[in-house]
Design a protein around this nucleic acid. Structure first.
Lengths: 230, 230
DNA sequence: TCAAAAGTGTTCTGGATACACCCATGA
DNA sequence: TCATGGGTGTATCCAGAACACTTTTGA
């Protein structure tokens, strides 16, 4: 291995997903730095010398949202030498899932307060299906992240990280429908999800306008790969 | 983003798979550098300043095997600050698939000549199920690579890169059995693989000791994700 | 003529899909 | 009493798994 120091910097970029106002949303920041002034991008930054990539992305997430224990997963390393006009930067993309409060509440930020820094001129939630023009190769990252999220949803229990501790099956199904962007049959979804044995019925019932729905909770609130998904 | 130069170096490590002598094998090199003198590791090295990770791993593969157009895929970025005792190095793992010649030939290197460099004391093929002690976090890489390969085999056509242009269904099935490490029913495998419509019958037949088998070829010899795999 | 592998079925089962009926609640 | 969503059940279809019989070759 060559001993000459490489002049390569390493960064992480995070696609922070949440389900809010009947849409799948991500956090974008508005850049100040040229040549992307005014353009939106995923939050990110260089990693510290003694920090792993996981730690760096966790830190980045905490700085922007205050959330400390999200679902977090490495996506892909983007490394085109020309991807950053300001020098050689390799970016490792991550995606995170956070629960931003009531699922179909209107016009709420769901308790998550986004934190602006002086490095950016703005920060906000954007519908993944209606993203603005993005800086760098972040359009690729978005595509990749959505693909991975949809894929993971089918064969893991990661949905727990988008929901409060207790929820109805309709709320859970709604999360699936929003992420997969297609309707799911209520009855078939219920049978399928319950057959996976990853939910526990609680004695409680929803309070609401119609017939009260039973509340469920995840047996395990950490990533588990579902067995027996063909 | 901090403008202070990070003292982080970036490397790629490649898990080069082939099917040979009825086993799934990978290339390992024997290290000279302390503290891993004499220990085996996956081939790899620092990337050049103006080189993408894909290009770096392709170069590494070419240097070790002479192979120029393998199947190549990024696996994961390993970034524990303590993973390399000689300094901060982030390694992006790749896996490659190459065809090393006749599938069940005995004691052959299948036409692929492994190239030793002065940086290493030895190079060779190892059965993935019987790996020696590995340097760094390469045991993790091995586990990850095998998992990804098995996964990909089920829902893509990547098997083409392990086979010659024409092959019998038995040879193809053998490749699947070796990689998945379990027997597959001959008749069910045949029906399944033909239903995917990714193979083309050729008029040719195998020469051999028993009833001649029909030879098939892949319609497309580049990565394709198989539709309709549930 | 016989061993070995190739070619071509059939049956069974479980999961996915499509769809129907009745129940509990608030307005 | 009625609109709205909740709870539960049934018929159908298809893919996957288990398994059998016949054919073609070389020795």
């Amino acid at each position: 291995m060559t001993q000459i120091a490489q002049s390569i910097r390493v960064a992480v970029d995070i696609v922070i997903f949440t389900v809010q106002d009947n849409a799948l949303k991500v956090i974008l920041i508005r850049m100040k730095k040229k040549p992307f002034t005014g353009i939106w991008a995923f939050p990110g930054g260089l990693i510290d010398s003694e920090e792993s990539l996981d730690a760096a992305s966790k830190r980045e997430l905490r700085e922007k949202t205050g959330v400390r224990s999200p679902y977090l997963e490495q996506l892909y390393a983007f490394s085109d030498p020309k991807r950053d006009p300001n020098g050689r930067v390799i970016s490792i993309a991550y995606f995170a899932l956070i629960n931003s409060g009531p699922i179909s509440s209107k016009g709420t930020d769901g308790g998550i307060k986004l934190i602006t820094t002086t490095k950016y001129s703005d920060i906000g939630w954007f519908d993944v299906l209606k993203l603005p023009k993005l800086a760098y190769d972040h359009k690729n990252i978005a595509k990749y992240a959505l693909q991975r999220l949809r894929w993971k949803l089918e064969y893991t229990n990661i949905a727990y990280s988008l929901l409060p501790s207790r929820f109805t099956l309709s709320e859970l199904r709604r999360v699936y429908e929003i992420i997969l962007d297609r309707p799911l049959d209520r009855r078939n979804f219920q049978r399928k999800i319950l057959s996976l044995k990853m939910l526990r019925r609680t004695p409680k019932k929803q309070v609401g306008r119609h017939r009260p729905a039973r509340l469920y909770e995840f047996k395990v609130r950490k990533p588990v790969i579902i067995e027996g998904v063909s």
